[in-house]
C-alpha cells in the first residue's frame, strides 16, 4: 500500500465513464461520507510466542511482499541482527534481537562464567553463557486503542474482525494517532503523507486466509486465529514452559490491566517488557482526558473571573 503506482484501483480505467471537473470535485468532497456498516465477525488476533522465534525475518519479508511495502534501504544499526530498527510506514513487522551476553568484565546475571567468546560446547549444552531473545513486533490491535480514539477523521476503525484498521483513503496524515500510540507502532509515510501500520491482513482474512506473516513463520512463533482460542493456547504454553523450568515465562497483553485494555496481538515473553522495547505498564491516555478538560475549564473560568473582577473594580 506504500507504493501507489501499483494500486490499479487508483488509476483511471478504460471502462470508467468520463468524469468532469465538477463531478470530480463533488466526488472528492462527498466520498468520505459514503461509508456503510459491516456485520461483526469473530474477533481474531495474533499470539506471538517469543520463545520459539528464531529471528529468520520471514514474517517481515512476507508482510512486505503481500502488502507491497517499499524497501526501507539498508542501514547498519549496530544493534545485533536488527537492521529494520523499528516499525514504520513500510515495515509493519519488525523482528527484534536482544543479546543477553555478558560484556567484557561484566556479569550476565544468570551465569557469571559468561564471556563474549562462546565455545561450541557452551552453545550445544544450552548456552549457559547467555541467551538470545527474539521477538516479531507488530501492531497490538488494542481492544481499546488510543489511536482509534485519537483519529479525528474516523479513518481508524475496528473492522468486522475487531482489528484496528486504517482506511487509507480517509486518513489525512494529522499524526495524532502517532502521538497517542503507547507502543510506537504507527508512522506517517513520507511518500503519501498518510499513517500506516499492520492491517492484520484484512484483505486475506476476508478471503479466509491466514495473515502473511503467520503463514510464513516457520516455527509457529506467530500464531493467528480466533482470539479466545489463542488465549487458551497461550495459557497452556505458559503452563508447559513453567513445568519445564522456564519460570520467567508470562503473557503480555493477554488480559486487561487497570490502565490498559487487553491486546488482540499479545506476546509470550521471558523477560521484562522494556527489554523487548515494550512499555512495562502501558497507559491509555484517554483515562485522564475528562479530568484534563476539567482542569482546563476550571483554569479558564478562574482567569475570566479575575478579568471580570479587575474590570469592574477599576473605576475608569
Amino acid at each position: 500500500m506504500g507504493i501507489r503506482e501499483l494500486e490499479l484501483t487508483d488509476l483511471p480505467q478504460t471502462s470508467d465513464p468520463p468524469v468532469g471537473l465538477l463531478a470530480s470535485i463533488v466526488n472528492r468532497l462527498t466520498w468520505p461520507f459514503r461509508y456503510g456498516h459491516v456485520e461483526p465477525r469473530p474477533s481474531t488476533g495474533f499470539y506471538t510466542d517469543t520463545t520459539v522465534c528464531i529471528g529468520c525475518k520471514s514474517c517481515e519479508v512476507a508482510c512486505k511482499q503481500w502488502n507491497q511495502l517499499a524497501a526501507d534501504g539498508l542501514e547498519w544499526t549496530g544493534n545485533s541482527y536488527d537492521n529494520t530498527a523499528e516499525l514504520s510506514a513500510t515495515s509493519w513487522r519488525h523482528v527484534k534481537f536482544i543479546e543477553q551476553f555478558a560484556a567484557n568484565g561484566q556479569s550476565a546475571g544468570h551465569d557469571t562464567t559468561a564471556t563474549h567468546e562462546l565455545t561450541i560446547d557452551q552453545l550445544v549444552n544450552g548456552g549457559g553463557a547467555g541467551r538470545w531473545l527474539m521477538m516479531s513486533d507488530v501492531c497490538k490491535h488494542c481492544i481499546s486503542a488510543p489511536c482509534q480514539h485519537a483519529c479525528p477523521t474516523g479513518a481508524i476503525i475496528y473492522n468486522e474482525f475487531a482489528n484496528v484498521y486504517i482506511q487509507r483513503d480517509i486518513c489525512n496524515g494529522c499524526s495524532y494517532c502517532i502521538a497517542a500510540c503507547p507502543f510506537g507502532v504507527i508512522t506517517r509515510s513520507d511518500f503519501d503523507g498518510h499513517s500506516h501500520k499492520c492491517t492484520l491482513c484484512y484483505d486475506r482474512q476476508k478471503d479466509g486466509l491466514v495473515p502473511a506473516c503467520a503463514k510464513a513463520c516457520p516455527t509457529a512463533s506467530i500464531q493467528f486465529g480466533p482470539i479466545d482460542e489463542l488465549r487458551e493456547r497461550a495459557r497452556n504454553r505458559v503452563k508447559e514452559l513453567h513445568a519445564r523450568g522456564v519460570t520467567g515465562a508470562y503473557l503480555y497483553g493477554e488480559e486487561p490491566t487497570e490502565s490498559y485494555s487487553a491486546l488482540h496481538s499479545f506476546y509470550l515473553l521471558v523477560d521484562r517488557p522494556a527489554v523487548y522495547g515494550l512499555p512495562d505498564a502501558p497507559f491509555n491516555p484517554w483515562l485522564h482526558m475528562l479530568a484534563d478538560y476539567g482542569r482546563t475549564i476550571a483554569s479558564a473560568l478562574a482567569t475570566i473571573a479575575v478579568i471580570l473582577s479587575l474590570l469592574f473594580l477599576q473605576r475608569l
Binding site: 499524526s175 502517532i178 510506537g184 522494556a274
Partner: peptide, 24 residues
C-alpha cells in the same frame, strides 16, 4: 511473571529507547 532477579547485560537492546514514536 518475569523473573526480576535476573538482571542481564543488554548490548545494546531496546531498554534505553523511547517506545513511542515522535509525531512529525
Amino acid at each position: 511473571m518475569q523473573d526480576d532477579n535476573q538482571a542481564r547485560a543488554i548490548e545494546p537492546g531496546y531498554l534505553t529507547q523511547d517506545v513511542t514514536k515522535v509525531p512529525g
